[in-house]
């Protein structure tokens, strides 16, 4: 058995998942069990050619043609790889989209974004693919912020303050961003087959516990770095738009809850529109803006 932790969950796996951080002390009752086994993909499946799915109150079943099937239940994920599927590709799907859907079924608000934390709390950066989230995260990490998550930001809104849970200690970077941040990409695994985006281990300064959320930023391209507040109604559009796997919300029946949670978050947490500059040289100015803003948010 292998014991891991991610997103505040204790995870016990029947097979090794090196992408997940190991857990030193094995809990008696893990929050999530991972196992290999057959998954019924014949009964009641619907969906497009690329991804077939079945949703019931008890489970969510997904089938990807080249990877295999995943059955997500209340405290268990069963993996049924397709014959000939790359083990690494199956694991990447498991710790990415599939784990994200599991977190959503557990009631967390999952956003497509990156997160870092200062001493005061966490910040989430939302944006379309290619907006520069990972580059910004790497730059903030180099400046002394703790790394929290890449790609999936899992927020717990059940308590009196919104908190962000730490994800996997890895960061996906394009080669030019990696070079600019002194992280040579050579030899590192690719984030997706056919993409030159590489998965970088984060190493030092990784958050290991949930942090109070201070602010949410939407990241956009632009000529010069700037930061402007977003009204709650505008922030709500961004939170809905940048849901993790937004196109699955309706299919899995999570749309209404995502809406309610996003509305609650937009009311409680300041949101900002962050324009990144056109070049890497402008990164320090952008980082200054964010640091100042987070200091203000912490004093609220």
């Amino acid at each position: 058995m292998h014991d891991y932790t991610a997103y505040g969950l204790s995870i016990r796996s029947h097979f090794p998942v090196p992408e997940l951080p190991p857990l030193e002390t094995a809990p008696a009752h893990p929050d999530l069990r991972l196992r290999m086994g057959p998954v019924d993909v014949e009964t009641g499946m619907s969906g497009r050619e690329q991804t077939a799915f079945r949703v019931t109150d008890e489970h969510l079943c997904l089938r990807f043609p080249d990877l295999g099937a995943f059955l997500i239940e209340a405290d268990r994920i069963t993996v049924d790889p397709a014959s000939g599927a790359s083990t690494e590709a199956v694991r990447l799907m498991l710790v990415g989209s599939v784990l994200g859907l599991f977190l959503r079924r557990r009631g967390l608000l999952t956003l497509h974004g990156n997160a870092v934390a200062s001493r005061d709390g966490a910040a989430v950066f939302l944006g379309a693919s290619g907006a520069g989230k990972s580059t910004l995260t790497a730059a903030l990490h180099r400046r002394g912020f703790r790394f929290m998550s890449d790609d999936v930001a899992a927020l717990d809104l059940s308590g009196p303050v919104a908190t962000l849970r730490p994800g996997l200690p890895r960061l996906k970077l394009w080669p030019d961003a990696a070079e600019a941040l002194d992280r040579p990409p050579g030899g590192l695994p690719r984030a997706h087959p056919g993409l030159d985006k590489r998965i970088h281990p984060v190493g030092a300064r990784v958050a290991t516990r949930a942090r109070r959320l201070l602010a949410v930023y939407t990241l956009e391209p632009g000529r010069a770095p700037s930061l402007a507040p977003l009204a709650p109604a505008d922030a709500l559009v961004e939170l809905i738009r940048h849901a993790h796997l937004p196109r699955s919300l309706r299919i899995t029946g999570d749309e209404a809850r995502h809406f309610e949670q996003s509305a609650a978050l937009a009311r409680r947490i300041p949101a900002r529109r962050l324009v990144r500059g056109a070049s890497f040289d402008q990164l320090p100015r952008l980082l200054d803006l964010i640091e100042d803003d987070l200091r203000h948010a912490a004093r609220r």
Binding site: A128, I240, R241, P246
Partner: peptide, 17 residues
């Protein structure tokens, strides 16, 4: 009305995309 609001906000996000 909440259902319409959800749909509108979702479509607004798609429009921005």
């Amino acid at each position: 009305a909440a259902r319409i609001a959800r749909h509108n906000l979702m479509l607004a996000g798609v429009l921005l995309d």
